[in-house]
Each structure stands twice: as C-alpha cells, then as structure tokens.
Design a protein around this nucleic acid. Sequence first.
DNA 1: CTGTTAGCGCGTTCAC
DNA 2: GTGAACGCGCTAACAG
Lengths: 342, 342
Amino acid sequence: MSSATIRDVAREAGVGVGTVSRVLNNHPSVRESTRTRVETAIASLNYAPSPIARQLSLGKSSNIAVVAPFFIRPSFVERLRGVETVLAEYKYDLVLYNVETQEKRDELFRSLPRGDMFDGLLILTLAPDDDEAQRLIGSGVPAVLIDAHHPGLNRVNIDDVRGGYLATKHLIDLGHRRIAYVSDVLESPFQLDGASARRFSGYRQALAEAGIDYRSEYYLQGHHGVREAQQMANALLALPEPPTAIFAASDTQAIGVLRAVEEHGLTVAEDVSVVGFDDIEVAEYLKLTTIHQPLFTSGVEGAELLIQLLSKQAIAGEHATQINLPLRLVERQTTAPPRTRA
Amino acid sequence: MSSATIRDVAREAGVGVGTVSRVLNNHPSVRESTRTRVETAIASLNYAPSPIARQLSLGKSSNIAVVAPFFIRPSFVERLRGVETVLAEYKYDLVLYNVETQEKRDELFRSLPRGDMFDGLLILTLAPDDDEAQRLIGSGVPAVLIDAHHPGLNRVNIDDVRGGYLATKHLIDLGHRRIAYVSDVLESPFQLDGASARRFSGYRQALAEAGIDYRSEYYLQGHHGVREAQQMANALLALPEPPTAIFAASDTQAIGVLRAVEEHGLTVAEDVSVVGFDDIEVAEYLKLTTIHQPLFTSGVEGAELLIQLLSKQAIAGEHATQINLPLRLVERQTTAPPRTRA
DNA sequence: CTGTTAGCGCGTTCAC
DNA sequence: GTGAACGCGCTAACAG
C-alpha cells in the first residue's frame, strides 16, 4: 500500500537513516556506491518522503495561501492564473481560500498569520483594516496585497483615480456632457478595497476639469453583477434627461449596461456610449471600450514580490514596497460622439 | 516572534501538555476550572496550535488536492466554485494544481497519490490512463473525477453523447439539414477527457436518425478557444454550400462562431443558427441557445462524494460510483428555422 | 480527571 | 563518509 518510511529504506539499503536523508537532499558528501544502493532501495520500496514530516522538521511548509473574495469574477480568475504561474515555477503549493462573508473573513485573518502552515500570504482585493494589518506584519509571515491598498503592506495595484479619469475624459473628448457612473456599492459592511470610490473621484475630477457640473442623479451604486448594473442603467435611461454616456466600474457591470441600452430600444454607441473597466476577455468579444488593467500581470508581480520577500530572510521593519501597474484606454466600438440634438 | 508551543501553554497554565491538547480538542473529560485556566493561558500567550505537527501526529492533512487543466475556462471556474463551497463547509483546505503540459501532468500523477499530503483528490476534466488509474486506486487515496471518465474510478459527469444529440436534434427539428459541428481537437497528445468526441457521436446519431447524410466537410476540429473557433466557422461559411446551422462543442467556441457569422455580414439565427454547450454565464448575455450542464453542481457533487468516501474508512475494492448529471437544451435567440430558399 | 511518555517521519548535529 | 540520537509540535495511550 502506501507509506514506506525513511527507516524502511535505510534498513533495505543497509545504511542509516541519516544517509538516506542525505541522498534525498543531494548532499554532496555521500559515496557514489552507497548513493546508488540507497536509490535502488528507494525505487524498490516505491518510497517517497513525507512532505508533512519534512515540513515539521524544517519549519517551512513550501505552500502559500491565496485568499480572495468572489471566485466568480473573471478578473479574479485572471489574477489567479498569474499567481499560479509563478508559484508553480518556484515549486510552491497554492492553497486557496474563498472569502465571501464577514465571518470567514475574520476567521481567516485571525488564523492565517499564525501557524507554520504557510510560508507566505497573497491577498486579493481585500483590504485589511489597521488591526488586521498590524497582526499581519507582526506575525512575520510575508504577505502581499494584490488589488488592495494598505500603507505598510507590500502591494501591487493600479491608480484607480486615474482609471476613472481616463474613462471619463475619453467620453468628454468625444463630446459627451451627460455622463453617468454605475458603481459598486461603496459602503460595504464587508471590507473590500474601495476601488470604485477612487474611480469615482477620477470621474469627478475629469468632469470638473471640463467644467461640467456633477449631477448626483447620474451616480448610482449597486452590488456587483450584471443584473444589478442593468437595473441601474435602466433607471438612468428612464431619467427625464438621460445620460448620453455611461461609465461602468467594471466590464461585468458594463455588460449589464449594454443590455439595458438594448432593452430600451436604443443602440449602443450611437445612442449611448458605454465604457467599462478591466478589459476581461469577453470585453473583446463584446467590442467594449474599456480601461485595460494588467490582470494576469498583477498576479505575476504579486507572487514574484512575495517569493522575493521569502528569500530575503524576512527583513521585517523594511518599509513596504508598492508596485503600480499601468492603465490604458482600449477604444473599441461601444463609444462614439453623442447624437447631435435634433 | 510567533509560535508559542503547546508546552509553553502547559507551563503557563501549570498543567501537562496532555491536558492542553485535551482542551484544544474539546475532550469532555477535563474539569471546567482547569479548562478555563488553560484557555486564559492560551489567550495570554496568543497561542495557536501548529497544523503541521497536528497532521504529522494524526496522519491526516485535512486538505484535499484539486487538479485541473486550463484555469481560464469559465466552465472550470464554475466547477471550482462548487468544490470550494463544500470543502469549506467541511473545513478542508483546497490545494490547487494547474496542469497545462504533459510533464506537469505526469509529475502530478506520480507524486499526488503518495505522501500523506492529501486526504483526497479531486480531478477535473483530466482522464487518467489505465496506469495512472491503477496507481490511484492502489495508493488508497480517495479520489473522484469530475467531468472525466474512467471505469473503476469514482466520477461525476454528464452524458455527452446525449448532449450532442440534443443540440443537433433541436436544429433538425427547426428544419435544418446542413448542420456543422465545430469541435475541440480530438487527438490531443495531452490526455483530456474526450467529451468532444462523444458529443460528435451524438451529433451523428441525430443526423442518422433523421436520414441526413453525414458530410465530413461540416466537421472541423481545432484547439479550444474563441479565435480558433472563429476561424473554423469562417471556413465553414466559405464553403460552396455552407451550413445553415452550427453546433459548437462549447459556449466559448460558440462565441467564435457568432463572431464569424457577423464577419460574413450574416445575421445570427436568421441566416445561420448557432448552438453552444455548457451554458456558462455569458451565454445568457449573448442570448446563446445552448446545452445546459450543471457546472457548479458538478463541483458540489464531486466534493461531497469525496467527503463521503473520506469518512467511509476507505473501503477500497468497493466498486466505483458514478453520478450522472442531467442535461437540457436552453433555447434562446441564436437558433431559428433556416431561411427558406429563394 | 490529569501528568508522563512514546511515537508520527524526517533533518541535523556529533562523534566515529 | 556514515550511523546514532535528538528535536520539530502535537496526539494518544497509559498510569496514577
């Protein structure tokens, strides 16, 4: 069946366990003849070392925890792929934690930092509060945030304010003046990273710069999701003076907006322009104009930063590094100049 | 920094380590007064037990491995979500392995079964060959396949033949006679589960049943992906006698077909009908007629089956159970009767 | 009820 | 070069 131990191998090869351990770890000081003897013993017993025992002895686990909310979001999947790529390269195992409730969140932030269970932590889209952050850095477990902010913690993210600005500016340059913003809900009891809020301020900044008054009826919040966004857009389009352009906080939400536009018998771009955020894969198929952010790359960068931290003998107290990824507008076919007034 | 051990707690509380272990595991036989004493000691030392040491001692890891190819596919994500849901419920940790090359595949199938690293295995969309299967069942590590077949291994899947039949039959009932099939490549050096092939035979079955001759020029294979499918559909549409309907092996590929139809200046449904497979989320937004398969549910069922196996004291030799999930046609707006000949 | 001790499987000195 | 003994942190079985 299973589990031959190192001792069995030692006996079989007629050597001590120490020697077996040495060949296992490619220790130079072991005679070639005994090495081969041990190796054949290993092969014949079909032996494989126990990772767990190894971990206990070594004090490291060689696996890193990835915690993230909302599995479903395409943007998360892209990031995760990036993470997986580099973790696999460095032979780290990826343990995945999904967090969709406040309780699970608390539980995780309490248990993760302790324990020798993980060599490192990767946290996606979840901004720790000050307490949690303190505990994290205090625990000495290297951690990096991806798509989340916290001063004092290593992190890779984007300039959301600029993203909001870019999207809005594009619409303004096209000639739009009545521009709405469909946002995630800002005040979540569940602490996400307030990207929507920052994009909102970029939106207002662009508006102000162009001398366009901000209108609160053009600013709607709702839970993340196609359906919710569709409803918001419906409300917008039903306004006495509906917007001629809508900026959605994510591509997913932009899809909802697109549907609402169709539902109203209007045509996208011609009647109302739509711009999204993220540039997930479907955005291309939908020909959605959007703000591209490096999703896959964010995962790669975050994981690499973590690996680097891991090797660096954990010089705590070092100030946290921040990696900022570039943003750019991808112009496709859902934006156009506003229809000229009849 | 971290790691107070159980011994520290014992000393602090003035008890033996055994007692501490008992309160940790809620053993009934411990006086209330000492229990509280230990608990305060735990709190004051900010102690948390080492999962690894615990695992070594217990001989179980409380984590299960999920191996799957192609992170990116939306269908995989849905399944993974289902898996995660039940694993979390039962307090199992989810260790994720991505497999996109033959080497990684071999490496994994060699290393996974051994070791006390995992209590169980969940394998998605990857059909083990006979050797691998033998090693799996021989290892005694409970495993279940999701979206993959192998006699002798526990598995949850669908009736792909029937799926292919349903899709094709729908088209036939609509009046189509020239029906093409856009497929994944069947002979992959990389051993996936041959779902496309089975769907193909369902396709042929429906054709035969309706007395429609099979035409090899209507059957194209290509790698999974929007772009590849789009090219195949382009080729199909450029045929002297192009098909009036196209059945795609997945929704992702159906998206490519949709694009190709547009590219040719044709309109979907009116000029050419398209049906997909999977019913991923975007299918709804694209109004794609498709074969719905329970993606999320497949993850749930697979994980639950595994959990059940885990508790059942691993009665090996038991014959493998197979769970078959239902399929159904979801009719949306990409299919319609063929245009009547002018 | 509770303290003590023996493993769990492996890495690592430390002498030989 | 190589074997023996100890320790990693915890659970479980055995005495009290």
